[in-house]
Amino acid sequence: MGGGTEHPLARRITDGLEPRAWIVAVALLTGWHAEGAAGVGWGAFAAFFCGVVPMLWIRWGQRHGHWGDRHVRRREDRLIVLPGVIVSVAVCVAGFVLLGAPREVTALVVAMLATVMAILAVTTRWKISVHTAVSSGAVVLLGLSYGPWVLAGYVLVALVGWSRVRLRDHTPAQATAGTALGAAVAGPVFLGLV
């Protein structure tokens, strides 16, 4: 696995629907659902610590030769990257608690934290797909806020999974497991807190 077979459409899907894009979208949309325009500010705070800071961490490691690319293909490298992501998301949770963020947005970030921790736990033994875990969790979380019609977004999750397999960055089992993990962790954690 790794150094995948290049397929232009699969590459565009993998890059365009990477975890950061999903995280930013779900954070802003959940903020809007929670408190309208004011909630978007909370969503932007979440997007910064859960999407932007982790991407800066990944890019720093990439520039310094610690891992190969922004998708961190090697499982061993993910064991370094994911704890850094967990720290950033945990800082966001602490900030939300201290600042009195809306319950729905706080629940979203706690669900993200739980999902990343679950991904890390699996990654210690096996290379699960972060792309499908994050996209699946995002669709479930948006469905819980906006209604079941959002679950049609699983078409995009399937495309993400296809792209990861087509690029040979993951097996079908790793992409499917990521999809299941994202939904199974993010949804119940969110529901337990709202």
Rank of each mutant, 00 (worst) to 15 (best):
A44W: 00
L181H: 09
A34L: 05
A101D: 08
W22F: 03
A114P: 09
F45L: 13
A118C: 07
V105K: 06
P19I: 03
F45R: 08
H66T: 09
L191I: 10
Y146F: 14
T132W: 03
G187Y: 05
L113R: 04
R103Y: 00
G192Q: 07
E6K: 14
T179F: 05
V134I: 15
R73Q: 14
Q62W: 12
A186S: 15
L167D: 05
R125E: 09
P8F: 01
G2N: 12
F190E: 02
R20W: 10
V139F: 02
W42T: 04
R103M: 00
V150K: 00
A183I: 07
A121M: 09
L181R: 10
P148K: 11
A114T: 10
S145V: 13
L82H: 11
E18D: 13
S129K: 03
V194H: 10
I119C: 06
A152E: 06
G43W: 05
I80Y: 13
V140G: 11
S163H: 01
P172K: 07
R75T: 03
D69V: 09
G147Q: 02
R73A: 15
E18A: 13
V189I: 11
R164G: 05
F96D: 12
A94Q: 10
I128Y: 02
L9F: 11
V139A: 02
D169N: 10
I86W: 01
G51A: 08
V52D: 00
V87I: 13
T14N: 13
G187R: 06
G100N: 06
L159T: 02
A47G: 09
S163A: 15
W57Q: 12
T132L: 03
F45I: 08
G41Q: 09
L56H: 00
A101W: 03
V139S: 05
R75D: 06
W60A: 11
L79T: 12
T14Q: 07
A94P: 07
P19F: 01
R74S: 12
V52E: 00
W60R: 10
V81R: 00
V122L: 14
T115P: 02
E18Y: 11
L167A: 01
V150R: 02
D15T: 07
A10R: 01
M112H: 11
